[in-house]
Simulated scan of single mutants.
Amino acid sequence: MVYHIQQVCRSEDVTLPTSEEVPNMPVTRTQILSAQFECYLKIIRDPPHNEDGTFCNRTWDGWMCWDDSAPGTAMQLCPEYFQDFDPAEKVTKVCNSDGQWFRHPESNRVWSNYTLCEMFTKDKLTVALSMYYLAILGHGLSVVSLIITLCIFSYFKSLSCQRVSLHKNMFLSFIFNSICTVIWLSVVAQDQELVASNPIGCKILTVLNLYMFGTNYFWMLCEGIYLHTLIVVTVFVGEQQLGWYYLLGWGFPIIPAITHAVALNFLQTVYKWFVNGITSNPHHLILSFCLQVNLFFLLNILRVLVTKLQVTHSAESNAYMKAVRATLILIPLLGAQFILVPWRPEERKATTIYDFIMNIFTHFQGLLVAIIFCFCNAEVSASISKCIKRII
């Protein structure tokens, strides 16, 4: 068996890359040596190939380990050693019909095809940078628009009511979420050394991101419950105790955020915390459930309001109908990314379009909330117009 390993090594003409060939050489060389050692152990420990017919022997090609292969093309995902390589692409290695690994016609050396690993890296980097700046722009616009919205609702006393108090808390949750996301994107996401070191500060920021992201949807749920209680349960009469809404909107999101973070701490690195933490099943299923419950509430409210309008045509019913319409528009807008997640296309251009749409729905949510609840609100427009007229 030792002789077999020596043959494998020589057959590949193995040479480790030099520091001129690969950036961040110390880390890369350590990773390759570790992978090489694991490969040789695997070659020794795996049982011999028992199937009849011709096959190519297991081997180490200098960067990756290959199992015994039947004639044809073997494939693996690209290694993560090099920054210029895309781990989502494939490496191919051809096994000839005579049971020998394919040799490159120019060098006559056994050859693995790593071409795809860096073929689209520049294009993907360009797309990634575009998405990064789109995210920064979206959250920046969201923060500015929501602060303006908060100022408007706080300044005009004529707009004050319990429903507006809920609006303000929802606006605050979107502001905090955008601030946390911008901090992550600016400080952590671009610092690979910081990500690799996985400090406690990054974990805390990730939990905060999960929590703030959750508060957005729980405050949307509060909006739906409030309207449902106001219209369907109490039939337009009486005020509600807002303490329970504060507990649901700010308190309850702590539970899924902490639970999800604890699970991720055992399973993933801090980088995967963020990549999977915001969009992976355990957390977003809870948020998706909030949206579904909200949709049920609002459809029931709509049914009651339509019935009452047919009978009374009261101005109060019309006012509530406008509030319901605004919330009904917002729910599918905020939940679009949850609907689209399972259908991520594999084709490159379609994937780019998909990621662009997902970024719009994810990072411009605060701006959408401000537009629907404030800038397109007739009561707000009327209050601002009266103020301008008084000044003039």
Rank of each mutant, 00 (worst) to 15 (best):
Q36A: 14
V2K: 04
A350D: 01
M170D: 10
P71E: 01
F297G: 01
C161P: 06
I152Q: 04
N276K: 15
A350I: 02
E12V: 03
T229S: 05
T352G: 02
L328D: 06
I357K: 03
R348P: 11
N108D: 15
W273F: 11
M75E: 15
Y155M: 09
L248N: 00
H49T: 06
R303M: 06
W219Q: 03
N209L: 14
M75G: 08
T115I: 03
V207P: 00
D68I: 08
P199A: 04
L41I: 11
K42E: 08
L230F: 09
T312K: 06
E118V: 12
S11V: 09
E106R: 01
L367P: 13
Q310V: 04
S19Q: 05
S160N: 14
D84G: 08
C376I: 02
P47F: 15
G251C: 07
F289S: 09
T327A: 13
G214W: 00
Y132H: 15
L302H: 15
R390G: 03
E38W: 09
L302Q: 15
N294C: 14
H49Q: 13
R303W: 07
D191R: 08
N50D: 03
T307K: 09
D86E: 11
Q162M: 12
T149W: 05
L227T: 04
K308V: 11
V2T: 07
W343V: 10
W60D: 01
W101K: 03
G72A: 07
P71R: 08
Q76M: 05
D13L: 12
D68S: 14
Y81N: 02
Q190I: 13
L264I: 02
G53Q: 10
V380D: 11
V324Y: 05
L295P: 00
F274K: 02
Y133C: 00
T351N: 13
T229F: 01
S107R: 07
K389N: 08
G138R: 11
S381E: 06
T352D: 14
F364A: 08
F274V: 02
L291F: 10
V324M: 14
Q241A: 06
C222L: 03
S280I: 01
L77M: 15
L137R: 07
F373G: 02
L134E: 07
N359P: 07
P105F: 04
Q268V: 07
L285V: 06
P87G: 04
